[in-house]
Design a protein around this nucleic acid. Sequence first.
DNA 1: TAACAGGGTTATC
DNA 2: GATAACCCTGTT
Length: 287
Amino acid sequence: MHKILKDGQYIKIDNITKNELDLDKTLDCGQAFRWRKDSDGCWVGMIKNNLCILKQHENYIETNITEDKKDEFINYFNIDMCYEDEIGKLDLDTYARKTYEFSKGIHILRQPYFEATVTFLMSSCNTMRNIRNIVNSLSEKFGEQVETEYKGKKYVDYAFPTLENLNKASLFDLQLCKMGFRADYLKSLCERLSENNILEQLEKYVNGDTGKYRMTIKTLRMFKGIGDKVANCIALFAGHHLCAFPIDTHMQQIIDTEYGGKIDLSKYKEYSGIIQQYMFYYKAFTK
DNA sequence: TAACAGGGTTATC
DNA sequence: GATAACCCTGTT
């Protein structure tokens, strides 16, 4: 079992391999769109307002995270859960087992609600590359710039915009970020959240039971541009409702070809969302 | 090189 | 249940 140790002024996750937490897969599997890998093989990205630098080694993960930020780091990467124990123990059907073997190392992140909601609002009828361009553009225009230095190298990034700042943007400003028809959805989202920040309520439902999951989906679907698929993505990647099972065209294809058009999620216990991500990753990255 | 199709969906007829 | 809303990319 891994441990969080001090490594000079920073912390490192010790005794952890790619089988448990694989940064490449986790940060590039379509759940988050703002992380980038630099020329030294470090993953660079923002956790709230902190610019994080992470590097995977064979038996540990190196970070620039200080002790006082430890808890939110553990929380973001769901390091508090051992996937090899939990998922490895499930009695999986053949296809699910195959996708698990291929995709293991993916952790489901706990992303901030506002960021995930905006991100997946941008995802409808869109490609990963476009989504990436849009959220980066939004961050550069409306997010706070953050700089840091690690091992003699300077890093610059932008925090995801706050609701307050994004709400100042006009429809035209938003359209400059190349989001097309989704600009209307985003404008409407910001306006409604400014009157009554419903997402703060949903924060209280993070990791919740099925009742709270249903409430989360119902609430999210009240916004323009959020249907069942997008709501489930947000519930899974921000709300950490691991039972959420977003069905896009790829997942529908898998259900049709591998499960005869209907899939029984109960066999995955409370972890169907994780299995969904394994299947999605398998389909996206094998050909 | 220009033209075109289609993509991780939703809202609205 | 069909259709259109946009920007980008790959293909021809």
